[in-house]
């Protein structure tokens, strides 16, 4: 089977996020108030051939650890992208 998977990569807690900080500073000028703790990240969508969804998620997690994220500064999580 073929499973649609999304991997989210975000900076680890405590790692400075200049992109998120810049976005947050711009918000009040656009009329968005009361928004804090903005963190920027990346999202990767892919289809994975696997026996079942949990195997597909395990493959995605391994890929995220090895390539998609730098574990020194980032966390990665894999989730299903199936609508449901």
């Amino acid at each position: 089977m073929n499973y649609p998977i999304i991997v989210d990569v975000t900076l680890r807690e405590g790692i400075a996020d200049p992109e998120g900080a810049t976005i947050e500073r711009a918000l009040p000028a656009l009329g968005f108030n009361g928004i804090s703790h903005v963190r920027a990240g990346k999202s990767f969508r892919m289809n994975i051939d696997a026996e079942d969804e949990s195997s597909a998620l395990a493959i995605a997690a391994a890929l995220a650890q090895r390539l998609l994220s730098n574990p020194v500064i980032e966390n990665a999580t894999a989730r299903s992208a199936a609508k449901g």
Binding site: I15, A16, P18, T22, N70, V72
Partner: peptide, 17 residues
């Protein structure tokens, strides 16, 4: 070298982008 794990740490986007 940091990505390859041959040196510790990581290089992030500059402060102030």
């Amino acid at each position: 070298l940091t990505e390859a794990g041959l040196l510790p740490g990581a290089l992030q986007k500059n402060r102030g982008l």
